[in-house]
Design a protein around this nucleic acid. Sequence first.
DNA 1: GGGTGTGTATAGTATATACTCAACATGCAA
DNA 2: TTGCATGTTGAGTATATACTATACACACCC
Lengths: 122, 122
Amino acid sequence: MQRSAAPSFGTHVRALREARAVEDSRFSLRQVAARCGVTPAYLSRLERDESPPPGAEVLVKLAHELQEDPDVMLAMGGKISDDLRAAILARPRLFADLIRALRDTPEHAVLRILREVRDGDW
Amino acid sequence: MQRSAAPSFGTHVRALREARAVEDSRFSLRQVAARCGVTPAYLSRLERDESPPPGAEVLVKLAHELQEDPDVMLAMGGKISDDLRAAILARPRLFADLIRALRDTPEHAVLRILREVRDGDW
DNA sequence: GGGTGTGTATAGTATATACTCAACATGCAA
DNA sequence: TTGCATGTTGAGTATATACTATACACACCC
């Protein structure tokens, strides 16, 4: 199974937006920019990777506009959401060890842990 | 069991440094600053919380100097080490869910998970 | 009482981050 | 053929981050 290369932030956003623009004229660059509270000039540059990804606030608004998962959108912008940061910083040694241990653990194994935590007879 | 309030970054650093300075004159503010590659003026401000915590590089050098865990020192400076960030950003949805699930999980339970991951028949 | 060490105060700077404003070129629609 | 919408370009700005340089005041030692 071939894995496609991760698209850059701008490319990804443009793809999402243009996909929706086909059917809905409310997804022009200008209108999306307006709803996200930035200038069209800026969004244009973002989509062409001419500016580095925007701040967390704009990232989240973009995610909402484009129906992308906020954590994924933040990640594409190189950011981690504040609540996750806070959780890690509250117990840094614990989470540092855990994340390093799980870094190379396959998806399905992590999901299994997650399910068990949620079922929660810990 | 009474939990002492978390000390500010500067207070913590000053406490660590002065503890070692009692026995070892190489832990004067000036000498530690020099070994961490910053000016005494800056370290003085840091220790009195007059400047916000320094950048990651200085935080790690301070941790090394003062025998503190780097992840803990980074956390006190409000930062997360690059390798952890990278691990999370590589699989944002997975780690976001996991961290949120574990946010309120007691220490011993997380440690148990950690042990199991390390024993590793996942 | 001059030198050496300590921490501190004031002021300033370099770089990065996160954007804006104004103007422009193109297409299409009335 | 003008009017409006599209995306784009060039230049500039505000704020935050991460520090430095210089000078000062105090203590201790001989």
